[in-house]
Every structure is written in C-alpha cells, then in structure tokens.
C-alpha cells in the first residue's frame, strides 16, 4: 500500500536580515493511512514549520512532498487551498472559529469552498456536529460556547469534508484538563474509526495518546519511534 504522506529531504529556510534560519533542515518522513502520530519538540525546534508544511500552508524551499500521489511542493496557491480544503482537517490550539458565525455555519464554511450545494452542506455540517456531541448547540455562536465545546466545533469543521488527515496543533493547550480529556477521547475514537491523526504537542501525556512519536530538534527529526502496536 502506498503511503499517505511522503516528505523527502524537506528544507525550509527563512531569511531574517542577513541570517538564514533553517527552520527545517532536511526532513524525511513517511506517514501511512490510519496512523496516530505525535510530533514533539521544544519551541523553535521547527515543529510548527513542519506542521504548516504537512498542512500545505507552507511550501518547502527544497525537497519533495507527496500527498496521496499529488506533488505538493510544485503547487501554486490555489492548488494548495484546494488540497487543504479536500484533504486536511485543522484543529488549532486557539480554535480559530469565525466569531460571528453559528457553530453550524462554522462547520459549513469548508463545504462552501468546495462548492457543495446549500442543502447538502447543512446536512453534512449538522451530521458532523452531532458526531462531536453538539447537536443541541448548532445555532450557538462561539462566544456562547465553552472552550471544550468550541474545540469540538473545530473538530466537526475539520471532519466535515472527510479529510485524509486531521492535523491538531496543541488541541488541548487552551483547555482545562477535563475538557482536554474529552477532546483527546474524540481524537482517539476518530483514530479507531480509521482516521489518520497528527498531533503537535509538547505535553508528554498528550503525545502518549499517539502510536508513533516523532521528536524534532533544530529542524531535524531526532527520533521517530512506534510506541504502541495498533
């Protein structure tokens, strides 16, 4: 079976004044379907850059990135937008919901950009919200929801387009431990239903939900180990 994601010798350099920052300095990584991966590393290690790279928000300075056979490193902005829309579900630390839109509309937005008719959008969005247990909060705005509920809206939004991977960047970082545990339960159950999940975190106990832990340091993968059998 071919891999889902394949990064080969990915480099990402920034010029800051005269200095060149090597945020990623030759990363090789292969991720298969239905993996549950944690990416760990101290701040400044390049893990955010790696996440942006995997999430197709950023493109490499050099190297080869293949996502389900599509060559991401060659893509232009519109193609990147399209692949983010179709294949990646983002869950952010700060939720990143549209503050003025209802939960339902927030979940609907990716479907708008993938050109799905209104009635199907409502259908899919409400199904997705029901999956994360928010069927009774569909018409609430983010400010009327608790942190845990907001993050569940974000997960519903990430799921709504049936993405190939769910990319969660410190998903529990802004939550109390109880809400955090709930969110991790949802991610665990998504994994057990066949989804591929990539978790970026610096918390050991969060990372331990994953089956494979990747440590980043100075823009390079320091170690990559399977910690649990499927």
């Amino acid at each position: 079976m071919s891999s889902l994601i394949s990064l080969q010798n990915i480099k990402r350099h920034y010029e800051v004044g005269d200095e060149i920052v090597r945020a990623l300095d030759g990363v090789d990584l292969t991720i298969n379907h239905n993996e549950y991966i944690s990416i760990m590393g101290p701040s400044g290690s390049g893990k955010s850059t790696l996440m942006n790279m995997i999430g197709c928000l950023d493109t490499p300075s050099s190297g080869k990135y293949e996502f389900e056979g599509e060559l991401v490193h060659d893509m232009d902005d519109n193609q990147l937008a399209s692949i983010r829309n179709r294949k990646i579900g983002f869950v952010f630390q700060t939720f990143n919901l549209l503050p003025k839109a209802t939960a339902l509309h927030n979940v609907e937005v990716p479907l708008i950009y993938s050109n799905i008719p209104k009635n199907q959008r409502i259908d899919k969005a409400s199904k997705s919200l029901t999956e994360v247990g928010l069927h009774d909060r569909m018409y609430h705005r983010p400010n009327e929801l608790s942190g845990g509920q907001r993050q569940r809206v974000a997960i519903a939004r990430a799921l709504v387009n049936d993405p190939s991977i769910i990319l969660a960047d410190e998903p529990t970082g802004n939550l109390d431990s109880k809400s955090g545990a709930e969110i991790m339960n949802i991610l665990d159950s998504l994994y057990s239903r066949g989804n591929t999940i990539i978790l970026v975190t610096h918390e050991e106990y969060i990372a331990n939900h994953a089956h494979r832990i990747i440590n980043i340091f100075d823009g390079k993968i320091k170690d990559d180990k399977i910690v649990k059998k499927k």
């Binding site: 999430g55 928000l57 902005d77 519109n78 937008a81 399209s82 983010r84 829309n85 179709r86 983002f90 990143n96 919901l97 549209l98 937005v109 990716p110 950009y113 993938s114 939004r157 387009n161």
Partner: peptide, 16 residues
C-alpha cells in the same frame, strides 16, 4: 486578518 487566515487554512482560494 485572522478571519482571512482561518478561511484560507480551511480552503478559501485567493479568488474566494
């Protein structure tokens, strides 16, 4: 700006 970022992350193109 933040909203634009969110929309772009979840698939809005430049044209959108």
């Amino acid at each position: 700006i933040k909203e634009i970022g969110i929309r772009k992350a979840i698939g809005a193109t430049r044209t959108d």
